[in-house]
Design a protein around this nucleic acid. Structure first.
Length: 500
RNA sequence: GGUUCCGUGGCCGAGUGGCUAGGCAGAGCUCUGCAAAAGCUCGUACAGCGGUUCGAAUCCGCUCGGAACCUCCA
């Protein structure tokens, strides 16, 4: 752990389209808001990537000494099927289909979401607010927008007035690079659009049609809040009128985040977010993974290997490692070959974790220090920080870990004497390796083993070997192999490892 | 159609005006009863065509190919 000031973190800001030095409004405190899932269905692997990105950012910020308040919402109302302001509520539709209460849908998929995030070793956010839990705040926000003349009521619904917003200096479209005229020209004619003054206007409150089951009383009759409103209300409530980081998937840039900014500025008269961050999509055969394309799969299917696109099961840590090997702003293409390669890489790293914990320093005056190796290690540690500071470049960071791993393996195998590194560099090597992987990247050793049993077998192995009873030796080896473990037969000792 | 982005070696994937990314796979070596593990060594790359430059995979232009957003989507 280092002081935040010692790590010049730079983040790519969607707003400015460049990397900027990260300077929190109130260091060492950092406020970070991430758009969470709409809990109407199981989260798929593409969704996971976004949350993993911001989990890693959360971890790194914390690691370098910031005190982070991480807010990630759950959308449990207001998100409609189909075109923006028309169509059924996603949760309401599921509830109808399954003939259950909407809150049952919400609960089921909230549980699923929590299970999945835990499986991927994501840290829980500091606050996980829900849209239905903030109905009063949302109604008040609508009232305020109306009072300010930035919204208008129409047939029981309330719409945000983009024209008026822009007249007052709003810059609708600046986050996503949209040009208003283009948007206007290309907007399709929608049913019910006549309620709006401009096709670009979006609902902050919707009147509930008779068949709509999720509905709340409001000054405008029974209805429900617009999708974009919850994020504005909850981010302001928990992080203030201006906060440091707002994240989400790239596909939320427009219109969701654009609308959020408009509402925030309308309500609070200031730029709400300092750094907007967007993670890129997970693709399958070059195409975005999404439910509608039918190329998405669920974490559970991945862990079980039970999907037509999957050759075999892949563990959560394999997948986490796989995703961290690419940069969050690049698309990442899913394939079995890539996952298999990641599995091996992850297991090497995991073996290193196990080994690193066993290593201790022993001074030896007869050993000459190897300054080149010491420098190499120090450089790798520094470059890990440099990589993460450079817009969270976990791919380059991981490359450094393999350099550190090499030295850890050499020490363990007796190919390098620990005294050549000196105590300081040795400690740096071991502690950095462990903390980078555990704390920053959120990877841990996945396999659970029964250590005493393994040790007993290894003792037998050694005895049989000394007696040259190679058939028994091979038998023990094959037993280990069947458990996904390998016996490491080294000169000075015998141990086991996760087989790669 | 508009906006934006991408095209890197057998595969995945960083980088980006001159300095080894890395992982996986492949070849060889050390070690070994044989292996495995580990370490060492090795290999071919920057879609195509022009241009700028002492020098470009990296900048500019064009061509080809692909993607995302513009509509719910992480």
């Amino acid at each position: 752990m280092t002081e935040p000031a010692a790590q010049p973190l730079h983040l790519y800001n969607t707003l400015s389209r460049r990397k900027e030095r990260f300077e929190p409004i109130n260091a060492p405190y950092v406020g970070m808001y991430v758009c969470g899932p709409t809990v109407y269905n199981y989260v798929h692997l593409g969704n996971v990537r976004t949350f993993l990105t911001f989990d890693t950012l959360f971890r790194y910020l914390t690691f370098i000494g910031y005190k982070v308040r991480y807010v990630r919402n759950l959308t449990d109302v207001g998100h409609l099927v189909g075109d923006g302001d028309e169509g059924e509520d996603k949760i309401g539709r599921m509830a109808k289909l399954e003939k259950v209460e909407p809150m049952e849908i919400v609960q089921r998929f909230t549980n699923d979401f929590h299970t999945v995030t835990a499986q991927f070793n994501m840290r829980p956010p500091s606050i996980e607010p829900t849209a239905t839990g903030h109905m009063l705040e949302q109604i008040e926000a609508v009232q305020e927008l109306l009072a300010k003349g930035l919204a208008y009521e129409s047939n029981g619904s309330v719409y945000f007035d983009i024209d008026e917003y822009n007249k007052r200096g709003g810059e609708y479209g600046k986050l996503s690079g949209r040009i208003l005229d283009d948007l206007l020209n290309e907007t399709r004619a929608l049913d019910g659009q006549s309620e709006k003054r401009s096709p670009l206007d979006f609902a902050v409150w919707k009147r509930a049609a008779p068949e709509h089951i999720m509905r709340w009383n409001s000054p405008w009759g029974e209805g429900f809040p617009g999708w974009h409103l919850e994020c504005s209300c909850m981010s302001t409530k928990y992080l203030g009128k201006q906060f440091d980081i707002h994240g989400g998937g790239m596909d939320l840039k427009f219109p969701h985040h654009e609308c959020e900014i408009a509402q925030d500025r309308g309500l609070n008269d200031r730029e709400p977010v300092r750094y907007w961050m967007h993670s890129n999509m997970l693709t399958v055969n070059g195409q975005k993974m999404s439910k509608s394309l039918g190329n998405s799969f669920l974490p559970a299917e991945l862990f079980a290997g039970s999907h037509a696109l999957l050759d075999q099961p892949y563990s959560p840590m394999t997948v986490r490692f796989f995703m961290l090997q690419s940069h969050y702003r690049s698309t990442l293409d899913f394939s079995n070959d890539a996952l298999k390669a990641a599995q091996k890489g992850y297991r090497r790293l995991a073996n290193g974790l196990r080994i690193a914990k066993l290593l201790t320093y022993q001074a030896d005056d007869s050993v000459t220090p190897d300054l080149a190796k010491q420098e190499d290690i120090q450089k790798a540690v520094k470059q890990f920080y440099d990589a993460l500071n450079d817009d969270l470049n976990t791919a380059v960071g991981i490359a450094q870990l393999f350099t550190l791993l090499k030295y850890i393996n050499m020490l363990y195998m007796g190919q390098l004497q620990v005294a050549t590194l000196g105590e300081e560099t040795f400690t740096l090597l071991r502690d950095s390796y462990l903390s980078f992987i555990h704390d920053v990247l959120g990877l841990y050793e996945e396999t659970t083993t029964n250590q005493p049993v393994l040790n007993g077998l290894l003792t037998l192995y050694k005895e049989y070997k000394e007696q040259k009873q190679y058939d028994k030796v091979d038998q023990i080896r094959s037993y280990f192999k069947a458990q996904g473990l390998a016996i490491k037969d080294m000169k000075h000792q015998i141990d086991w490892a996760y087989e790669e």
